[in-house]
Simulated assay, not measured.
Amino acid sequence: MKSSSNVFLVGPMGAGKSTIGRLLAAELRLDFNDTDKAIEDRSGVDIPWIFDMEGEEGFRDREAAVLDELSQLDKVLLATGGGIIQKSENRRVLSSRGRVVYLMTSIDEQVRRTARDKKRPLLNSDDPRKVLTDLMESRHPLYDEIADYIIDTDGRSPKSVAQELAKTLTS
């Protein structure tokens, strides 16, 4: 059964899921969790190390287990990793256990926001823009499929996005 007290943020790298999530959780008085941080805390290593040792598939298995556990909590706001929607089971879990907010952002904004971040294994490429474009082409339909709400974060402060979402989610 879908819990209206849980909120799950989905979207691409650089959309602001973690930053906006913390602010929105405070506004809505929900407990904040981040799937990527939970994976790192539980494994004792960072995500690039998991990718190096276990590959993307190993990381995605860990991600699915963390999502299953954290999404069963009550009154939680969960910021998810950009690729969490790739597994159909994860999409089912997200859409059945809470309200899903798709934080949408342009490729230009993603490139700008992730340019100096060295902890994103999928962006270890000579052409991060192409990687982000390819990811968006495959993932956008999946984000869109499960979203209860879609909000564009381009050119906006995290605080203004969080305030708008708080109003939307409480009305």
Rank of each mutant, 00 (worst) to 15 (best):
R129K: 13
T35K: 02
L78V: 05
D46L: 07
V66W: 00
Y149L: 12
K2I: 14
S106C: 11
F59G: 04
D68R: 10
G55N: 04
E109V: 05
K87G: 12
V93D: 01
L70R: 03
A25P: 11
L132S: 03
S4I: 08
K118F: 10
L9Y: 03
E69R: 12
S5E: 10
V10M: 00
S3Y: 10
E137Q: 12
D31F: 05
R116E: 15
V131H: 01
S106Y: 08
P12S: 15
G16W: 00
N124D: 13
R112I: 09
L73S: 14
L165R: 02
F59P: 00
D41K: 10
S160Y: 04
Q110Y: 06
G14K: 00
K37T: 13
K167C: 10
G16I: 01
N33W: 14
R97G: 03
I47V: 15
K37Y: 06
D34S: 12
D41H: 10
G44D: 00
R156T: 11
R29K: 14
D34P: 12
G83T: 06
F32D: 13
T133Q: 14
I50S: 07
E63W: 04
V161I: 11
M136I: 03
L142V: 12
R129E: 13
P158A: 13
D74L: 11
D34G: 14
G81Y: 08
E57Q: 14
D117G: 05
I20Q: 02
L28E: 07
N33G: 15
G58H: 07
D31Q: 09
D52G: 15
M53T: 15
I107A: 01
T80C: 09
E164L: 04
L103H: 00
D46Q: 12
R112C: 06
S3H: 13
V111A: 05
S71P: 07
A26C: 09
Q110H: 06
S18D: 08
G83S: 10
K118L: 12
E63V: 09
D41N: 11
G21C: 03
D31R: 08
D68K: 11
G155L: 05
A79G: 11
I146R: 07
A64R: 06
A65L: 09
S88K: 13
T153A: 07
A25H: 09
K118G: 10
S4T: 10
D52T: 13
E109F: 02
T153Q: 02
A64S: 12
L77I: 09
L132F: 02
A38F: 05
M1A: 09
R42V: 08
E40I: 07
V10G: 00
T133I: 08
R113G: 05
S171N: 15
V100E: 04
N90G: 08
I84S: 04
K167T: 15
